[in-house]
């Protein structure tokens, strides 16, 4: 079982991590880097709680080997905060009650942020489509969709 040292680019910072081939990005983020904002609900790609951005695209950290992201750049929920200021989505989710228990929230926000990076003013169907891989058990999604719309509107100002 090979171990190797990786230079992992997470939230703009490079971390040197000693790891084994079979460890997932999710395990390394949470266990080695203490970035516990990335959640997990199923470990097998069925819930979206562990969504992070890899080179700007949402992926499931539970199904990505850490050794396969060594050349890429990872963004977690912690990385959306810039200079102590929450991302528009983080503020909008808070303001509009889009987080209830808050467990799906990090992954949901990261999926939404990838959408807004691609489509500045998405319509409701586009928002729904972008969030179909993130299960939420509390909200019924409506307040989440409203929050994405609000963040998009603010992003236009």
């Amino acid at each position: 079982m090979a171990e190797r040292v990786l230079a992992l680019r997470v939230n703009g910072e490079t971390h040197r991590v000693l790891t084994s081939d079979h460890r997932t990005l999710l395990e390394v983020l949470r266990e080695d880097l203490a970035l516990t904002g990335t959640k997990h609900g199923c470990d097998v790609g069925e819930c979206g709680a562990c969504t992070v951005l890899l080179d700007g695209r949402p992926v499931l950290a539970c199904l990505v080997l850490v050794s396969q992201v060594a050349t890429g750049s990872v963004t977690t929920i912690e990385g959306l905060v810039e200079g102590g200021k929450p991302h528009e989505l983080q503020s909008a989710f808070a303001e509009l009650g889009a987080a209830q228990c808050g467990y799906c929230t990090p992954g949901m926000i990261l999926s939404a942020s990838a959408l807004l990076d691609e489509v500045a003013q998405p319509d409701t169907d586009e928002i729904k489509a972008a969030l179909t891989g993130n299960l939420c058990r509390c909200t019924g999604y409506n307040k989440i969709i409203e929050a994405v719309e609000l963040a998009a509107d603010r992003g236009q100002l």
Binding site: A34, E95, A99, T105
Partner: peptide, 21 residues
């Protein structure tokens, strides 16, 4: 009003049981 802990939730700071180490 937002939840009193809403920004902790949305920035990933809320500590759930499995986040405790």
């Amino acid at each position: 009003l937002p939840r009193v802990d809403a920004l902790q939730q949305t920035t990933g700071q809320t500590q759930f049981a499995d986040d405790l180490n």
